[in-house]
């Protein structure tokens, strides 16, 4: 479904070039959930944004749904994939109601039956009709993230890109959102890429996981192997150990 080959991203910062992503390659099969895990500065979110086409990148191949993804995406190409951002407080327009926010993609793509589609999308993500005309500031963090997911899925894209969708949420809300994502993934047979710093979250939701460090993919492992620690790289082991909590013993 998605093929990434030798993806590199370079930022220019006051005359210096910073190589945020260096030669990253992987494939995502249809219906698969692919995880990318790493610490801050590892380039994990940058990879996701490059695939989404919202930042410039270079690669020997970037294919989506069998077609090469152009640098400038057409409206139709945009419809193939949608994005869910990390911060539910920054990803919704502060002066638009939930209804406005969900209507917008439908209007852009000239889709009919707006009302019906919007109320279906609201029900789909577990919000009630009374949330429909609220402004983002009248919603909780979890409800906002549900709106963001509804907005991403209202165009029925085959691919969903998730950038730390639960890291700004409380554990109990995170559980609800992760359950919702699993449910939606099944009902719409979505292919998705999930970026997170939390090994527990990726292992829960993903089939395969790429571990990134300093702009490179260190290794790609199956979720089951990650759980039992069947990994080949020292860095991955370090991450696993760290995610199990604090160890008092001196290493």
């Amino acid at each position: 479904m998605i093929t990434v080959k030798d993806l590199s991203v370079t930022f220019q910062n006051s005359g210096r070039s910073i190589h945020a992503v260096r030669g990253v390659s992987f494939d995502v099969a249809p219906g698969e959930t692919f995880g990318i895990v790493g610490e801050s500065g590892s380039g994990k979110s940058t990879v996701l944004k490059a695939i989404a086409g919202i930042i410039a990148s270079s690669s020997s191949a970037l294919e989506v749904d069998g077609r090469s993804a152009a640098k400038r995406r057409s409206r139709e190409e945009r419809r193939l994939m949608q994005f869910v951002f990390q911060d539910p407080y920054a990803s919704l327009h502060p002066r638009q109601t939930v209804d406005d926010i969900l209507r917008e993609p439908l209007i852009i793509h000239g889709i009919a039956n707006l009302d019906e589609k919007v109320s279906a999308a609201i029900a789909d993500v577990g919000l009630s009709p009374q949330h429909r005309f609220r402004y983002p500031h009248q919603l909780s963090g979890g409800q906002r993230q549900r709106v963001a997911i509804a907005r991403a899925l209202i165009l029925r894209p085959p691919i969903l890109l998730l950038d730390e969708p639960t890291s700004a949420l409380d554990v109990s809300v995170q559980a609800e959102i992760l359950n919702l994502l699993s449910k939606l993934r099944r009902s719409y047979s979505l292919t998705s890429i999930l970026v997170s710093h939390d090994l527990g979250v990726v292992a829960h939701l993903c089939n395969r996981i790429a571990i990134m460090q300093l702009g490179r993919v260190v290794e790609v492992v199956r979720a089951g192997d990650l759980r039992v620690g069947a990994v080949s790289q020292a860095y991955t082991r370090e991450l696993i150990a760290a995610s199990r909590g604090f160890t008092r013993a001196v290493t």
């Binding site: 949608q82 951002f85 990803s91 327009h93 002066r95 852009i108 907005r151």
Partner: peptide, 26 residues
């Protein structure tokens, strides 16, 4: 630079639409 503008760009909104419908009101 904010996420909600990136989100409408990702939906395929034209530059004019982003400007007048999403940025100007703010």
């Amino acid at each position: 630079k904010s996420d909600f503008i990136l989100a409408v760009v990702m939906q395929g909104a034209s530059t004019w639409r982003v400007l007048f419908k999403h940025i100007v009101p703010l």
